[in-house]
């Protein structure tokens, strides 16, 4: 399988896993060079962390903000953010 085929297959997989349905409109055929960039699932671990998302099961009690602060500390990274609050009081 070519690098471009792997890349497109990856996109199709994450779209399907997320529960969405999309069809392609193909304008032209093209390949991608192995000399730069990387398949998202083959990033070196450090890169993978810096370009990563955790689908976290928020524990009860702390606020979403507090949970993000803990994650930041655990990974020793400067920035982290969540996708929509899930507050203790609902």
């Amino acid at each position: 399988m070519s690098l471009a085929e792997k890349g497109i297959k990856f996109i199709e997989k994450i779209t399907k896993n997320a529960g969405y349905n999309q069809e392609w409109i193909i304008l032209r055929d093209d390949e991608t060079s192995p000399e730069y960039g990387t398949l998202p699932y083959e990033r070196p671990i450090q890169e993978h962390i810096l370009n990563g998302v955790i689908n976290l099961d928020k524990p009860p009690g702390p606020t979403s903000h507090e949970v993000v602060a803990w994650i930041k500390k655990m990974f020793n990274i400067e920035r982290a953010g969540h996708g929509g609050t899930l507050e203790p009081h609902g």
């Binding site: 976290l56 928020k58 949970v67 982290a80 929509g84 899930l86």
Partner: peptide
């Protein structure tokens, strides 16, 4: 409340906010 709370690390912080506008269950 518990459950799905996606957390974007470092660079991902830039785009994780986009899921706020998506459907919830």
């Amino acid at each position: 409340m518990t459950g799905v709370l996606p957390v974007g690390l470092a660079n991902s912080t830039k785009v994780i906010g986009n899921v706020i506008h998506t459907m919830k269950e």
